[in-house]
């Protein structure tokens, strides 16, 4: 095995250092992008790059806004219950 593939494989054998901070919630956005892209790729009847990118972006934004609003709602509920 040469040097570079060994380093590449090593990155998959040890977990990244991510703390239990509010910033770690940002990891949901790449996942939302994946969901939006796959959903639109399977749903659109004829796939044209322009309309595909536009509709996938709109879906990604919709999902993101919904998730942020859900987080805010949960935060308010927790604040009422505990505060």
């Amino acid at each position: 095995m040469t040097f570079e593939p060994a380093i590449l494989l090593a990155t998959f054998t040890a977990p990244e250092n991510i703390g239990t901070t509010p910033q770690s919630m940002l990891w949901m956005f790449p996942l939302l992008a994946s969901i939006a892209i796959i959903y639109k790729a399977t749903k659109m009847r004829v796939l044209l790059w322009g309309s595909f990118l536009r509709s996938a972006t709109i879906l990604f934004c919709t999902l993101s806004v919904f998730m942020v609003l859900s987080a805010i709602s949960l935060k308010i509920i927790v604040w009422f219950v505990t505060g």
Partner: peptide
Amino acid sequence: TITLTFLTGLYVGSVA
């Protein structure tokens, strides 16, 4: 998309 999503998961949490 699926390959990148899966590999991102492996990169973040390792093969474990």
